[in-house]
């Protein structure tokens, strides 16, 4: 029961969603639309579970020495946004959007911009032409770095031309091969999942 029921449900929902692709029958469309609705709703619950788990872990960590105050700050953040949304709604000018625009979004972009510093450091430390493949990688990167800035256009338009050729042909070919590889891999995994051969999602309760 514990194993069979999920496998049967997976098989049924998988088969319906696969087979409906070939049917325009109203019943098939109605079932398809319903499953899409259900999928959306259940998916939203997964976030609620995630948020509840975060609160649970943070509450446990409140007593820990040193870490406690940070957990309290995080918990305050979780609580404050729903309160603001309940009090002032989510329209332009609401406190909810104000906090998002002036606190959350700037911090998020700043955290992301830290990567610029790390990339610069990595460029100096790790980007070495140790082997022929590494040299090819380096030259390709240099062409993009030079070809996409306007200053290089003042010197020669060839930087840009070569860069676009690299991007449109050899680089694109490799990316396409990766894409096809992922496509075929996903295809077989999807079939294995529907048929119950691939069951990794059954672990980790």
């Amino acid at each position: 029961m514990r194993n069979k029921l999920p496998l049967i449900i997976c098989l049924i929902s998988g088969l319906i969603m696969f087979l409906q692709y070939f049917s325009k029958h109203p019943v098939s469309r109605a079932v398809y639309s319903s499953i899409l609705d259900w999928w959306q709703i259940i998916f939203a619950f997964t976030l609620l579970v995630g948020a509840a788990a975060f609160v649970k872990v943070s509450l446990k960590g409140l007593q820990k020495k040193g870490e406690g105050k940070y957990k309290a700050i995080a918990l305050a953040g979780v609580v404050v946004m729903p309160i603001l949304a309940i009090i002032g709604g989510n329209k332009l000018g609401s406190p909810f959007l104000w906090v998002f625009e002036n606190i959350q979004a700037p911090m998020q972009s700043t955290v992301f911009s830290l990567l610029a510093f790390f990339v610069a450091s990595a460029a100096y430390r790790g980007f070495r032409a140790r082997t022929i493949p590494a040299a090819i990688l380096l030259i390709s990167a240099l062409f993009v770095l030079l070809g996409r800035i306007p200053i290089s256009e003042y010197f020669s338009e060839w930087f840009t031309r070569i860069m676009f050729w690299i991007q449109d042909y050899p680089s694109m070919a490799a990316r396409r091969a990766i894409l096809i590889g992922i496509g075929l891999g996903s295809l077989t995994t999807a079939m294995r999942v529907i048929l119950g051969i691939e069951r990794t999602y059954m672990r980790g309760e």
């Binding site: 460029a123 770095l145 996409r148």
Partner: peptide
């Protein structure tokens, strides 16, 4: 755009210097 160009040159210089040292 100018800042982007200068930053690109800065990274290129870092790569070159790193390789010279290596």
């Amino acid at each position: 755009l100018l800042a982007q160009s200068v930053a690109h040159f800065f990274i290129i210089i870092l790569i070159i210097v790193g390789n010279i040292i290596y």
